Amino acid sequence: MAADDQPESAGVRVWDRVVRSFHWALVLSFATAWLTRHSSEDIHHWAGYAAAALIALRLVWGILGTPYARFSQFVRGPAAVLSYLCAMLSGREARHIGHNPAGGAMVVALIAVMSATALTGWLMTMDAFFGVPWVEAAHSLAAHGLLLLVLVHIGGVTLASFRHRENLVRAMITGRKREAEQADIP
């Protein structure tokens, strides 16, 4: 039985196939670009182009997609993010069915920095910017910043999985999370 065809008793459907496919394809494109940065220019470039195309798709899907895919569902202001982070530090953060405020901020940060990495990488292939030191420095800074964000993201997913007794990696594969409990935020 396909993950999206599971009975409702298997949990609530949160992340649709577009979001899940985007997520894992972006993981693959970033890992490919990172691992080929010094060895295969063509593969590195195509991984960057794939990442840029995926980001464009996600931006559209963040407006037109299913409810939990929409930015309006999970992007919160700085005060909400800070409040959530403070609750995390005290071990009192609420479980969210979709992205929590910190996770939403991370999605925005990852999209922004991935976009900057792809843009500066593309600029480096153009005659007007080839070999220009500030473009190369910006690309390197963005790529290293992206790696740092990915590591923080993995840490946040691990912490949330542990705290809320829920395997978020499996949820990003199946699209389903356990049903909301009374204290959870839909």
Rank of each mutant, 00 (worst) to 15 (best):
R176A: 00
M172D: 00
I154L: 15
A171W: 05
Y84W: 09
L149M: 02
V27T: 04
A171G: 09
W24A: 07
T32F: 05
M124N: 15
I97L: 14
A69V: 09
L148N: 01
D16A: 02
D5Y: 05
L54F: 07
T125E: 15
G65H: 11
L35K: 08
A138H: 13
S72F: 09
S72I: 09
S83M: 12
T120M: 08
G98Q: 00
W24K: 08
V60E: 10
D42T: 15
G145D: 01
V135C: 11
R176D: 01
V135Y: 14
G65Y: 06
T32W: 04
W34C: 05
A33T: 06
L89S: 09
L85A: 15
D184I: 13
A160M: 10
G156Q: 07
V75H: 08
T125H: 15
Y84H: 12
S161A: 06
A56H: 02
A2M: 03
A171Y: 02
V113E: 00
L82H: 13
S9P: 02
L151Q: 06
I111N: 05
V18K: 05
V157M: 08
E181S: 15
V113S: 04
A109C: 12
L149R: 02
L59D: 04
W122H: 15
D16P: 01
R95K: 14
L26F: 13
L54H: 06
T158N: 11
A109F: 11
A51C: 11
V135D: 13
R170G: 04
R170F: 01
V12S: 05
W134G: 09
A171M: 10
S72Y: 07
V152C: 09
A52N: 12
W15I: 06
L110Y: 03
W15T: 03
V27P: 03
Y68C: 03
H38F: 05
G11V: 05
V108A: 08
A180M: 06
M124V: 10
A143R: 03
H38R: 11
D127H: 14
F130Y: 15
D5P: 02
R163F: 10
I55M: 06
A79K: 15
L64F: 13
G121D: 07
S161H: 04
S161N: 04
A51S: 14
R170H: 00
R163V: 02
I43S: 00
P7F: 02
G91S: 10
E8Q: 13
V60A: 15
S115V: 07
D42R: 12
F22D: 07
H153Q: 09
H44F: 05
A109N: 08
V107F: 02
W122C: 07
Y68K: 01
V12Q: 05
S115P: 08
D127Q: 11
E179G: 13
E179Y: 09
